[in-house]
Amino acid sequence: MFQLSPEGLGQVKKELARYETKESAIIPSLYVAQKENKGWINEDVIRHLSQVMEIPESRINEVFKFYTMFNQKPVGRHHVQICSTLSCHINGAPELTAHICKELKVGMDQVTEDGRFTVSRAECLGSCGTAPMMQVNDKYYENLTPESAMNILRGLK
């Protein structure tokens, strides 16, 4: 059973008091829980949040399912999201994606055998002037080539 750490619980309590209504704390609390559950969210997590926040599971669930930054299945420690929308698309995103998947020996949205990586397609990340680019967990890497991207990924344990 999933349980928030004391720090995580403290953060959720803080978010509950931060906005005009406690429902506004659903998105921030899902972030806290996702981080503590190895990067994804399942029914256990929703149930626990529902108890802690005193908000019905169905309310938390609909928010969880609507937003793409909440993962509905396990991801690697480093979630590699390659921007694939037009400016990146015409500046090498397809080649970048194919190269990374080949080098990491992994299909889209799968986890590498060692648990390190998941590669996903992302929609426009607001980095069109520095295409192609990828986001790895919280960080942007811009102006990539297939080789420079792999060098960055090899450095991530």
């Binding site: 998105i27 972030y31 928010v63």
Partner: peptide, 22 residues
């Protein structure tokens, strides 16, 4: 307030829904 990955939240009433926890 941080969104969570939805283009539609750039539409002003979509943004309001999102901020309301919907």
């Amino acid at each position: 307030y941080s969104g969570a990955g939805a283009y539609i939240c750039g539409e002003e009433t979509g943004m309001i829904s999102s901020l309301e926890g919907l």
